[in-house]
Design a protein around this nucleic acid. Structure first.
Length: 237
DNA sequence: TATGCGCAGGGCGACTGTCG
DNA sequence: CGACAGTCGCCCTGCGCATA
């Protein structure tokens, strides 16, 4: 029982509190009893681990893993490129519809992505990422609907891919270059880190990631920094 | 039979909102 | 501004299904 992490224990405590609160609101239990039941404090979370991310060189190596002469390789490259270039979440990428890819002010963007907490954002697509997308779409004959599709061993293109499959592609590609336990979210973190390292404005990085608070972005990146430049144009990839 | 993927479920880290 | 309670969704496993 005590093998569970503080995070899990706290989630459950939180659920109990809410249930007790409802019970008391509906007069099923008294105020005193409710107070007794909810006075158990959360388990303190000791130090947050920062997660994993790649250096620019590692990211380059990772992007070179898919064999882009094959159909599956073209798709896998799109997955890696969009994750590291646009910092999408796994599920956002899996669900990405071609309608989302739009031309705004003369450049390609992912328009009105709906992310965590229903927050809507628009993300610019770096040129090299768009090229990868074009190559995949042409080769696979994808013209509408989902951008990403399952590819059979025989090279046939199927309906769609789940977030799970996206994760699987990232995990396997990372494995090929000797990086263990590396998931889709780590590529999002990689993008943020590279943006900042190359002089990205933290306010812009906030928009890129779809954070509601600049504080979150700062925590994410370590510290504050004030510079200009167009963030994810400058990954140096 | 092997491959490639979907799907559900549970643990838990990442993120948000709020309060002192 | 730091700390904490609460929510969201990532990670991972096990299993089922279709196809080659």
């Amino acid at each position: 029982m005590d093998a569970l992490s503080p995070s899990t224990v706290n989630v459950r405590l939180s659920a109990v509190r809410k249930m007790v609160f409802e019970a008391r609101k509906n007069g099923m239990i008294g105020a005193e009893e409710a107070a007794t039941l909810t006075e158990v404090p959360n388990v303190p979370q000791k130090g947050t681990r920062l997660g994993n991310w790649l250096t620019r060189e590692q990211a380059k190596v990772l992007l070179a893993v898919p064999d882009r002469s094959t159909l599956k390789g073209k798709r896998d490259y799109v997955i890696l490129a969009v994750l590291v270039g646009c910092a999408l979440r796994r599920e956002e990428l899996a669900a990405l519809d071609l309608d989302t890819i739009q031309l705004r002010e003369g450049r390609w963007v992912l328009a009105d992505l709906e992310g965590k907490g229903r927050r809507v954002r628009t993300v610019a697509i770096p040129v090299w990422v768009k090229q990868g997308i074009n190559a995949w779409m042409t080769a696979a004959g994808v013209e509408d609907g989902r951008l990403l599709r399952a590819v059979t061993k025989a090279g046939k293109v199927k309906g769609s891919m789940s977030g799970w499959a996206v994760w699987s592609v990232v995990e396997q590609s990372a494995n090929e270059i000797g990086i263990e336990r590396f998931g889709a979210h780590d590529l999002r973190r990689t993008c943020a880190k590279l943006c900042r390292k190359n002089g990205g404005n933290i306010e812009q990085i906030k928009f890129l990631l779809g954070h509601s608070s600049i504080q979150t972005t700062e925590r994410y990146l370590g510290s504050e920094q004030e510079i200009e430049i167009a963030v994810n144009d400058n990954l140096g990839l």
